[in-house]
Design a protein around this nucleic acid. Structure first.
Lengths: 257, 257
DNA sequence: CGTACGTTTGACGTCCTTCAAGTTGGGTGG
DNA sequence: CCACCCAACTTGAAGGACGTCAAACGTACG
């Protein structure tokens, strides 16, 4: 079949649109998450100009560097972290496959560092290509807006958690959220999922010290709610965990998935 | 001159588009903030279907109720607050004239309560009218997306502040941000601005107790940085305050304004 | 003039941090 | 295959930041 965006854009400056990539899994996931139709999805996948494979811990984008287009996480887990002058860190977001990691309408210096937590694959859409896509398909603008809003809704829950919950409830809530999002991304089984974050990472997400994160995890285990060991998270009592966290997954925007 | 959106939409279900409102100040501010051109701005102002005057403390929108269109704050100061089951509160955002208070691409139950802090005026664009506007003027979608992103950037700074700053730095940062935004909205003079928030409100924004908020304000005053009394905020040592807060206003997206 | 609300102050308790010293376990080189 | 190493995890003790409670004080408003 004829790809409309390719024909529409061929002959212009978009040489790489013609080169179909075999790695379109994550982009497809992103497109599906954004509720795009088949045509828009194909156009998005055709706009991918760059795939990068990253090692565990590798930096995807430095804090302060200007964003180059749209970065989509295809495989693996990543996070956005604010690094402060004195070395303290605050994790701002966790990303799973299908997430856009820097979904902004205006290019500006990144307020956080993007980092691969596991080995990961990242796809990029160049600014110029993205601009063309948005002009041809107005619903892609809406899709990106939705992605920004979804991300903001998650961030808002973190804000409430940091401001008004003690570290026990915060830990429980964080685990609920991560499990739910991993599950939606196909990374979780019924009661167990990989959990690549170190206790120090968790602490940086919850705004507590690593020592205290360790103690809270032990408490959750003693209470028979979850067990976290050697990179695997076991949900033992989901109801109890949700209760301890006051967790209501509706803010994640995953209804039906 | 001929208003394109009025002619384009007249005869359809948009009776009220024709009724020009005398109170378009706040909507114009919003349009200016969003960098819309004259035509789009006029269209936006024509889409206003409702103005409400609110008393101090009055609720604009209940938590959990489904949003009805786009609410723009025209006059006064408002906030969004999450109320938890046990009565604790976390303020999620402060709004100044020209801000859209519920800028989301999808109608969903509000995750927070919107409240007028001072006497205020709120304008509303109905969902159907907004949809028509967005279809006619794609750049309005981009503008709303930008507004969502700007709000998210502010929220992100709050997240860092709550997670990794002590209450002294948090208070200083909050004051810097509020002053800067009030100033951009024309509410501040050189070194003094109205500050309608109670200490209890500030505490709910910073995730601390009202008692502790009081002590931190006293400390800032003793350090010769700011003075807050009877609803007025005096900036005494702006450099020192910015330093105590590690404040960099670039995230507010107010460059040049 | 009384009431309601916001602010201020002190005393005391708790949550969480910091420091410092282990322990475990997976990976690497010999 | 073993010794080694490093990162992550664990544990205890002590201190600090912040919360809670309770009471007093100021001030606007009906």
């Amino acid at each position: 079949m004829n790809d409309p965006i390719r024909s529409a854009l061929s002959g212009q400056k978009h040489r790489r649109f013609a080169k179909a990539s075999p790695h379109d899994h994550g982009v497809g996931l992103f497109a599906a998450n954004c509720l795009l139709n088949a045509e828009e999805r194909t156009a998005l996948q055709g706009a991918i100009s760059d795939f990068r494979d990253l090692a565990r811990g590798e930096c995807i984008h430095q804090q302060g560097a200007r964003h180059q287009g749209l970065s989509i996480l295809c495989q693996g887990v990543a996070h956005a972290v604010r690094v402060m002058a004195d070395g303290r860190q605050q994790i701002l977001a966790i990303f799973v496959p299908g997430d856009a990691m820097d979904c902004q309408p205006i290019a500006r210096p990144a307020a956080s560092r993007l980092c691969a937590i596991t080995a990961a694959q990242v796809a990029t859409i160049k600014p110029a290509d993205l601009a063309d896509l948005m002009q041809l398909y107005p619903s892609i603008v809406s899709a990106l807006w939705r992605e920004t809003a979804r991300h903001a809704a998650i961030q808002q829950e973190w804000l409430v958690s940091l401001g008004r919950q003690n570290s026990h409830a915060r830990m429980a809530h964080f685990i609920c959220e991560v499990w739910t999002r991993f599950s939606a991304a196909g990374l979780a089984e019924t009661d167990v999922c990989p959990f690549p974050l170190t206790q120090s990472d968790i602490a940086d997400a919850l705004g507590i010290s690593a020592v205290h994160a360790n103690r809270m995890l032990q408490q959750l285990r003693q209470e028979g709610l979850v067990a976290l060991s050697s990179g695997a998270l076991h949900i033992i009592d989901r109801t109890g965990l949700h209760e301890a966290a006051s967790f209501d997954p509706s803010y994640l925007g995953l209804d039906g998935r």
